[in-house]
Amino acid sequence: MTALRAKGICKRFARSRGGWFSVLEAVACEVTGDSLVVIRGISGCGKTTLLQILATLSEPDSGELWIDDERVADWSAETLASFRRLRLGLMHQEPALISRSTVVENVGLALIPEGLSRGHRHRLAKERLRQVGLADLAEEVPRTLSGGERQRVALARALLTEPDVIIADEPTSQVDPATTDLIVELLRAERDRGAAVLVASHDPRIWSAADELYELDEGRLSPVRVS
């Protein structure tokens, strides 16, 4: 079962008027398969920065990220890319869709460099779109979708390869209550399948679904007791 471990993660950014401000200070956390971990915190506290580091999209100033027993910093570029393609499901705060590609192509993006045929890719992508209730919009382009629909397209993409690790940043920020329920249901299902699920959210309905809840405050991550 896959485990994602972060040790001593620090990150700081330059201020526009000079000097630095620290966003993450020696953050440590562990997300194992079969668990749904949620991080909460006020806006600007660094949740997205932490998730980007855990998703290998950004490098920490110091600290280490481990996937199972391997240190990510030791991976080759190809190994890292392969991890992102096949073992990581990622849902960004903004849906991050390619505006000129169709919905089905956006969902299947990770499999293009994998060499799968268009038919195979589209079949898998359409299965995921069916799961999020958007099968009818497969051939549309993103600009014709609502904010909530784009969010669901991003979720379908994150679920495409039945990944070992799923990281979602504010997955319910632009959706109605019914869609929130659907997203929570799908994330739970992924957890039950054995995936390690990590979510950053302001949404109490997501918090209530968590196996473990953390609070990020002033760069430090601390557990919150789940009632």
Binding site: R100, S101, E105, I112, G115, L116, S117, R118, T161
Partner: peptide, 28 residues
């Protein structure tokens, strides 16, 4: 799942070419 998602190098090249063509048509 991951094992059934492995394609070929030829498929990779074909897909990239297909995406390039699609991209040019989309941004006509």
């Amino acid at each position: 799942m991951a094992t059934e998602l492995r394609g070929s190098w030829g498929g990779r090249a074909r897909n990239l070419l297909g995406m390039a063509v699609d991209g040019l048509i989309a941004s006509r």
